[in-house]
């Protein structure tokens, strides 16, 4: 029993060392410290400082009832198919 554990521990040290060597050779992403990130934006590419709240854009859709569209998806979901689309899949 003692022998098995020792062998196993030796194995782990070697495996980790080999994995470290392999990972160091692989291209690593740029370090976080090299980058400056802008906080407070919702997501990259959306930081254009425009909100509907300031431009009264909500006014344009005033007399439409958005609730009526909730169950009517009409986007790219039409391109997703195959397998089963029943919730009982899993």
């Amino acid at each position: 029993m003692q022998t098995t554990i020792t062998t196993r521990r030796l194995g782990l040290g070697l495996i980790v060392a080999t994995a470290v060597a392999g990972a160091t050779l692989a291209a690593a992403p740029a370090k976080a410290a090299d980058m400056e990130k802008c906080y407070g934006v919702v997501k990259a590419g959306h930081n254009d400082c425009k909100t509907d709240s300031n431009s009264c854009a909500g006014h344009a859709t005033k007399d439409r009832d958005p609730g009526a569209f909730i169950a009517v998806p009409a986007g790219t979901c039409a391109k997703i198919a195959g397998g089963s689309t029943e919730p009982a899949k899993k």
Binding site: P66, F69, V72, A74, I80
Partner: peptide, 15 residues
């Protein structure tokens, strides 16, 4: 937003 489209997403989001 892309998956369900503008009208459905706005309805869901406001709800």
């Amino acid at each position: 937003h892309r998956l369900v489209g503008e009208a459905c997403f706005t309805g869901l989001a406001q709800a």
